[in-house]
Design a protein around this nucleic acid. Structure first.
Length: 600
RNA sequence: GCUCGCGUAGCUCAGCUGGAUAGAGUGUCGCCCUCCGAAGGCGAAGGUCACAGGUUCGAAUCCUGUCGCGAGCGCCA
């Protein structure tokens, strides 16, 4: 810390680490309300403050912050909103952080903060660095985010890509607010689909041995299995040729699904996604974990043998007939029907490993469990929620996020994909063409449950229309102006800038930009609570826009430029603001897994 | 038939888990570019928040119903 740091108000050291101005002022409002009760200006009986909020008004004319306290309390206090508001205003202005307060509209109390509050925040941001905005929402808690979980039957495609980016960004967000996060991939290597994979690979193996492959309908036709066939030949020579399936299915299946997983891991690495845990479905079958789980559930009376009613509303049941099955009592926990866990041939249904897997996650003791599925798996939401509700009760918070389809475009033209013809676009292709950073950011420019158009040309365009560019451009501009100032002899270290005379940041436009920075901790909390990382991306776009706006003002109003020739003190104050913007952009991008640009 | 998601400006989408005159980009129209990075800037017009009820001081937001679009729906994966 520099000696200049001592010039700052030491009170900040006692502040909460999240440095959230909104919660600070809310605490002030609530303390003031409590004092009003003390003084007899407000009844105590039945008057709680839980619904009192402090927010940034949409319209800047309404001040920096507004509270709804008077309106919320009017009814329980049996008072008129304006009466409460006026007393509140009179007391609030006594605090030196409040420059002005007034009653407005139906009973809002609009607050204008003393410029010093905002100016001080700039220094705090520089001192805190990317710690600024971390809240304690998840402190001491653990979270598990399961995502991607694509079948190991081929390379990842763009659909998986969105799930991968979303899940990883969500995990990053939870990490940022204090959760101890586990990123997990559920490997479906135990079902019939890996048998199909093995048969498909066997044909490519025959092909490598000079035979014509017999790729029947239902097998995977993709070219990606050709080198796999070659690898099998390298390993087995022709020893498996013309042998019955029973002899080669298991060894080939295990080798090939491992190979596919290697490819998937490599693709995820390209995208910058690193899983903490890969959990294998096959290992559940092999280790008897499913049987063990079901035994336990029988003890809890969650399983029973019975028959399901025929499905309603579907075409007249052709071959449907009632059968006795082992069923999971999921209707007690919000599901539509009880789910069968065992097939009539004695094998497990697909639901059985899901059940065992989620029970396992519950037992690992996470405070928060999130599944990220593609939208085509929306039908599983209720049954999964039923599992966790039945087995975890209130001890665990469980959420399922669905990611909608990605539609690919090239120059505005839809890009047709066909898995059958083998012309589907892989995640690898996308990253090769546009890069991981662009891919990640673009995937987060829509809510997870909305369709996303991904245009190969537009995402690399350099214009305001392209949010990736626009945000990166802002951080590059800051880096550029800092470089330039440094060359002119200004000391631009964060610790020095933090100690600058920040009271020089007194222009409305500068204070407004700081106001935007002040929203960061609050925004992070909302995004984390709602499990919606796209909010980070939108905020960064807005912040970049505000920054560019201030920059552009400097074209007309020279006193607003970040470098003031011959005025070291003012330059440092303004550079501190610019740097604070880039700090927040960096930490926002870090949550999303994107590197900020130093130059472009 | 049932379940889930969606429906906001011409277009693509945000919208603080109930706040004030509903925002951004793009497109359209008008003006502007010697200037820290114009890779543009400023301004204007543009809305029955699908529709109808309800909850309350207050609803795009919560509840009910209707319509439209999408996805899913018993041993498959």
């Amino acid at each position: 810390m520099t000696s200049r740091g001592q010039m700052l108000n030491p009170r900040r050291l006692q502040r909460a680490p999240d440095m959230n101005l909104f919660t600070d002022i809310r605490e002030l409002v609530i303390a003031t309300l409590a004092a009003m009760q003390e003084a007899g200006d407000l009844p105590r009986e039945g008057v709680g403050f839980a619904n009192v909020t402090v927010e940034a008004p949409r319209d800047p004319a309404h001040g920096d912050m507004a509270t709804n306290a008077a309106m919320v309390l009017a009814k329980p206090a049996k008072m008129k909103p304006r009466d409460i508001a006026e007393t509140l205003v009179a007391k609030l202005v006594e605090d030196d952080r409040i420059a002005a307060a007034e009653v407005a509209g139906p009973g809002f109390v609009n607050l204008r903060l003393a410029p010093g509050v905002f100016q001080t925040l700039v220094g705090q941001i520089l001192e805190a660095g990317t710690v600024y905005g971390r809240s304690e929402l998840g402190k001491g808690k653990t979270a598990n985010v399961e995502f991607v979980s694509a079948n190991p039957t081929g390379p990842l495609h763009v659909g998986h890509c969105r799930g991968a980016v979303f899940g990883d960004a969500l995990a990053g967000l939870l990490d940022f607010v204090g959760y101890d996060v586990t990123r997990e991939y559920w490997v479906n290597d135990g079902g019939a689909q890996v048998d199909v994979l093995a048969r498909s690979a066997y044909e490519r193996y025959r092909e490598a041995n000079g035979q014509e492959p017999r790729i029947e309908a239902g097998l995977y036709p993709g070219d990606y299995l050709i080198p796999v066939g070659q690898a099998l030949k390298d390993r087995f020579g022709d020893s498996l040729m013309d042998k019955p399936e029973a002899e080669w299915l298991v060894p080939i299946r295990d080798i090939v699904s491992d190979l596919m997983m290697d490819g998937i891991r490599a693709d995820l690495a390209l995208l910058g996604v690193k899983m903490d845990v890969f959990t294998s479905e096959k290992s559940y079958y092999d280790s008897g974990k499913i049987e063990k789980t079901l035994e336990e559930l029988k003890g809890k009376e969650l399983l029973y043998t019975g028959t399901l009613p025929p499905p309603k509303g579907k075409a007249p049941d052709e071959d449907w007939e009632p059968r006795e099955q082992l069923l999971f009592r999921s209707t007690d926990y919000g599901d539509d029907v009880d789910r069968p866990v065992q097939k009539s041939d004695g094998g497990w249904t697909y639901f059985a490993p899901d059940l065992a897997y989620h029970y396992d996650k519950v037992k690992r003791g996470y405070d928060l469990i999130i599944d990220v599925f593609g939208a085509d798996h929306g039908g599983y939401v209720k049954r999964m929620k039923a599992i966790v509700a039945a087995l975890g009760g209130d001890a665990v918070e469980f959420d399922i996020k669905l990611t909608q389809l990605v539609k690919l475009f090239k120059n505005g033209e839809p890009f047709k994909m066909s898995k059958r013809a083998g012309t589907f676009i892989t995640l690898h292709d996308v990253i090769e063409q546009v890069g991981a950073d662009v891919t990640r950011f673009v995937m987060l420019t829509r809510r997870n449950d909305a369709h996303l158009d991904f245009d190969f040309d537009k995402v690399t365009e350099q214009s305001r229309e392209n949010p990736v560019f626009y945000v990166q451009y802002a951080s590059a501009r800051v880096a550029s102006v800092l470089r330039k100032a440094g060359e002119a002899g200004v000391d631009t270290q964060d610790s020095v800038l933090a100690g600058a005379d920040l009271s020089k940041l007194d222009h409305e436009a500068e204070l407004a930009l700081i106001g935007k920075l002040a929203e960061w901790p609050r925004l992070v909390e909302i995004a984390a609570r709602t499990h919606e990382p796209h909010r980070i991306a939108f905020y960064l776009y807005e912040l970049a826009g505000d920054f560019h706006g201030l920059w552009n003002l400097g074209n007309d109003v020279h006193s607003l430029r970040f470098v003031q020739e011959g005025d070291m003190a003012t330059s440092q104050a303004k550079l501190a603001l610019a740097r604070a913007v880039s700090v927040v952009i960096s930490s926002g991008l870090a949550i999303l897994g994107v590197e900020p640009a130093q130059e472009m």
